[in-house]
Design a protein around this nucleic acid. Structure first.
Length: 858
RNA sequence: GCGGAAGUGGCGGAAUUGGCAGACGCGCAGGCCUCAGGAGCCUGUGGGACCUAGUCCCAUGGGGGUUCAAGUCCCCCCUUCCGCACCA
């Protein structure tokens, strides 16, 4: 018997898999497909054992599904555009491409050494023109349909990265990547019209029943649908002493979800950034003082203001508007707690029924007018604006609300919104927190936006035949100036496709999330240079059956992808509603209680682990030690335990090879077996049942491994009893198999082969090697997954616990198919039970067949 | 503040439908085998009590409840993690 030597085994099988292209697939109509995908990688440099965890999870599922007869697409690629490459280029005075390609080469080697079963022939990197050409094509299709548009907007500017960020990329007021506090900036920007699909994106969530609820909740919150009404308050003229800046009558439009409280609106409040603020300042008696106060609010830390950490402050503009429902004038204030980016940037304040408004009113002595009275119980006093100490936001009956007085809040809001529409002072509406997706980035290392600016013709799409607009090679990266592309005249200067006159290219590049929001379709047809993908191929493979990735993409990537899925559907290129049927968000890998990361200095390099223990040990350890969704605390001793287990498997299988080789397993059904043999068969079939269910549909990889460990433990006991290797005592008796019965050989053979097959998704190299040594040629990648016989898996004797008043008192060993009556009688006759029932009245005996007996005494 | 998930031995974690709590592994202890053991194999390992071959009690964050039966279902509270955060 030779020792378990992972290195030679792993190299041997990795070479063979590649040479025989065993993981490459094509469409096979009529054969069930399975699209297993892990989120592709940003090539940041070196992957650590935390990065590779999800690749290993995906590999277990892919390999298992392959054995179950599915045509499995399991591709990999690179999310290769992005800032770090550019920053590294600035630092090293090199080119982002160089840095990126080197990292890809290294990380690909790491994944290949782990034996992940990717269809490498479909690999691509998004920084290749053959990929981003289709980004540009997609952009133009959207531009044609008005789903991509340009407008001047206040955007989130990250001074650290010197670029714009989408709302989704601002985390706690800072840049999601570098953490620098973002600042507002006015720029012409490109947007994708995600709001067009806001309702669809929200409703679709209800059908994503194989996604973690956490992700669904986050998406619902992010979309932030809110039903309410827009109401216009006409602005009254400024005092005659101050000339109006212009004579247009103006209105302030507010969004409210509580139009039923509008009779209690005692002022209207504008955000400091509201469009009317400047005009009001100009028309104020002391414009300078007015502007100074506004400026104070605008200067307040944006983050803190958004997070409500700043005290509510405001001032009266001196202007009034008319409440369209009461006809009475109410003052207009400007306050720091009103957000310009939500709704209309103006609100009506109803202090009696909104806590924020209440606090504001109390601070500045504004009236608190109660217009909703709750259902009073008994003699509770009705609400009084003068004495309340908090707003009442609950349900009730409208009071002092004109013709609406007496209505219930249940339907008043909808009714009054319609009334506003009838009077032409407002309308019912739905607000979303979700905004259109700003995709302009003032950086080099991304997809150039294929638009040409012509002074005569305006925005002109680059003609399709001119795609791709390739990134020019930039000689040197300095990090100076706003947009690298804008500094390259050869790139910028072009001619208008429409009038042939001189024109300028757009110099913004696309947010890299555009690249990553449709790459899964490209895998289906990765080398197509005629179109983004052949819809027929995507029809075969999509949607993705199993998608694995980090929960950090719960909002950004997964909403953008769901959005582009709908765009492709409208383009007639896909026919499914949702791109990802099932989503698994894997947990992080920690070491010493903190997330493994280069900056924390606690990373473990997979290559070092492979050098010490082999890839199979690393794979098994990460699959076994925690469920996929949970965090995994890295321990060296745990890893050694996994190595020990594989050594145990190796010794077991190689030792019994001569015994089981050629054993007549197909005769098992007719053989007469003794108890020990039946027990092992039962364990084998029970293990097949458990492992199969644990992998699919449960994806409880850790319990699947423990079931296999149990099987191995039982096999060791069986071998010891039957004087077989690998036990030391047996080994001393020599390797002769003469004493081994045909029954033993058959039962053992069945168990060993099932073990090797079921372990193979976890530790494929080891299992391939063992499978070959068991006498099978041709590899096991597509060998059928073992099936179990429920009759064999069922125990013929079972242990039934007996409780008295819910406390365990005895155990009965009985035939599995025993009747309830027998169980009941046997339980009552048990001495250990009788000692607790003697002298008492048996009130009830609960018998659950095959589970337990509970005797209730009083 | 709102929403979500979770809380089980010394540790990682099991427990598909309410039915023997602690599978499997790590660690620890003892034994076998050995020149040796940081290899291998076997055994033990939630806590406590006692009349210690055994028996009994307690135990899944805390407290109530439903039930013959609760880690699992319901209510209240505590803690941790995550998400959203003045969204009108």
């Amino acid at each position: 018997m030779t020792d378990y030597n992972p290195h030679s085994i792993e190299e041997k099988w990795q070479r063979r898999w590649a040479a025989q292209r065993v993981f490459e697939v094509t469409e096979e109509p009529g054969r069930p497909k399975f699209y297993c995908l892990v989120m592709f990688a940003y090539p940041s440099g070196h992957a650590h054992v935390g990065h590779v965890r999800n690749y290993m999870i995906g590999d277990v599922i892919a390999r298992m599904k392959r054995m179950c007869g599915f045509n499995v697409l399991h591709p990999f690629g690179w999310d290769a555009f992005g800032l770090p490459a550019e920053n590294a280029a600035i630092k090293n005075r090199s080119h982002p491409r160089t840095w990126t390609l080197e990292n890809i080469a290294h990380m690909k080697g790491q994944l290949q050494r782990l034996g992940i079963s990717y269809a490498w022939e479909r690999e691509f990197a998004t920084c290749e023109a053959s990929y981003y050409k289709w980004n540009q094509w997609l952009f133009l299709e959207m531009f044609k349909r008005d789903l991509a548009y340009r407008r001047r907007a206040t955007v989130n500017w990250c001074p650290g990265c010197a670029t714009v960020l989408a709302n989704e990329q601002v985390v706690d007021g800072g840049c999601w990547r570098c953490g620098t506090a973002v600042t507002p900036r006015e720029l012409e920007q490109w947007f994708l019209r995600t709001t067009q699909y806001a309702d669809e994106l929200l409703e679709g969530i209800d059908r994503l029943d194989e996604w973690p609820t956490k992700v669904l909740t986050m998406q619902r919150n992010w979309i932030g649908r809110s039903e309410g009404a827009l109401v216009r308050f006409p602005v009254e003229p400024a005092k005659p002493a101050v000339p109006a800046v212009d004579d247009d009558p103006v209105e302030i439009e507010v969004f409210t979800t509580r139009i039923d409280t509008i009779f209690g609106a005692t002022c209207v409040v504008l955000a400091p950034e509201h469009a009317l603020v400047d005009r009001f300042a100009a028309e104020a008696t002391d414009p300078e003082a007015f502007r100074r106060r506004v400026q104070q609010f605008r200067a307040q830390d944006r983050t803190e203001r958004m997070m409500g950490a700043v005290e509510k402050e405001g001032f009266d503009t001196g202007r009034t508007v008319v409440n369209p429902f009461t006809g009475r004038p109410v003052p207009v204030w400007i306050a720091n707690f009103v957000l310009v980016q939500y709704g209309t940037g103006a609100v009506m304040a109803v202090p009696a029924h909104d806590q924020r408004d209440f606090e504001f009113a109390r601070k500045y002595g504004l009236p608190v007018d109660v217009v909703i009275q709750p259902e009073t119980e008994g003699d509770a006093a009705p609400l009084d604006g003068a004495t309340m100490d908090a707003a009442y936001a609950g349900p009730g009956t409208l009071v002092r609300s004109g013709e609406f007085t007496g209505r219930s809040t249940d339907d008043a809001a909808a009714f009054m919104a319609r009334a506003a529409a009838a009077r032409d002072v407002g309308r019912p509406t739905v607000q979303f927190r979700l905004k259109d997706w700003g995709i302009s980035r003032q950086r080099y290392w991304g997809t150039p936006i294929p638009i040409i600016h012509c002074d005569a013709c305006g925005l002109q799409p680059v003609p399709y035949e001119d795609l791709p607009v390739e990134l020019p090679t930039v000689a040197e990266f300095t990090g100076q100036g706003d947009s690298p592309l804008a500094q390259i005249p050869e790139f910028v200067d072009t001619s208008c496709p429409s009038c042939q006159g001189p024109a300028r290219r757009e110099t913004d590049t696309m947010d890299t999330f555009v690249d990553s929001s449709w790459y899964f379709y490209r895998y289906c047809d990765a080398s197509n240079d005629e179109q983004a993908f052949d819809p027929e191929k995507v029809r075969y493979w999509a949607p993705i059956d199993f998608y694995i990735g980090g929960v950090e993409h719960a909002i950004l990537h997964l909403i953008y992808s769901r959005f582009l899925c709908r765009v492709f559907k409208d383009l007639g290129m896909v026919d499914h509603d949702e791109p990802f049927t099932r989503l698994l968000t894997q947990g992080m890998v920690l070491r010493n209680g903190v997330v493994m990361s280069k900056s924390k200095g606690n990373v473990v390099d997979p290559d070092q682990m492979i050098a010490s223990y082999g890839a199979d040990t690393l794979r098994l350890y990460e699959m076994f030690v925690a469920p996929p969704e949970k965090e995994l605390e890295w321990t060296d001793t745990g890893l050694e335990g996994s190595f020990r287990f594989l050594t145990r498997v190796w010794r077991l299988v190689t030792a019994v090879c001569p015994v089981v080789d050629g054993a007549p397993q197909n005769g098992l059904g007719t053989m007469t077996l003794d108890d020990a043999h039946r027990a092992l068969r039962r364990k084998t079939h029970e293990s097949i049942r458990r492992v199969s269910a644990d992998l699919d549909p449960r994806a409880h990889l850790n319990t699947a491994v423990s079931a296999l460990m149990e099987l191995v433990n039982d096999l060791y006991v069986f071998c010891e009893r039957h004087a077989l290797a690998p036990h030391a005592a047996a080994a001393r008796q020599g390797t002769s198999t003469d004493h081994v019965s045909i029954q033993t050989r058959a039962v053992l053979g069945e168990a060993i082969e099932a073990l090797v097959l079921m372990l193979s998704p976890f530790t494929p190299h080891l299992c391939e090697e063992l499978w070959e040594r068991l006498g099978h040629a041709g590899g096991l990648v597509t060998v059928a997954w073992p099936t179990f016989d429920p009759e064999v898996a069922r125990a013929d004797e079972i242990v039934v616990p007996v409780q008295v008043n819910g406390k365990l008192r005895a155990r009965l060993t009985v035939p599995a198919d025993v009747s309830e009556e027998f169980l009941r009688a046997a339980a009552l006759a048990e001495p250990a039970v009788q000692s607790h029932t003697v002298g008492k009245i048996v009130a009830r005996v609960v018998v659950v067949r095959r589970r337990l007996v509970n005797i209730v005494v009083t």
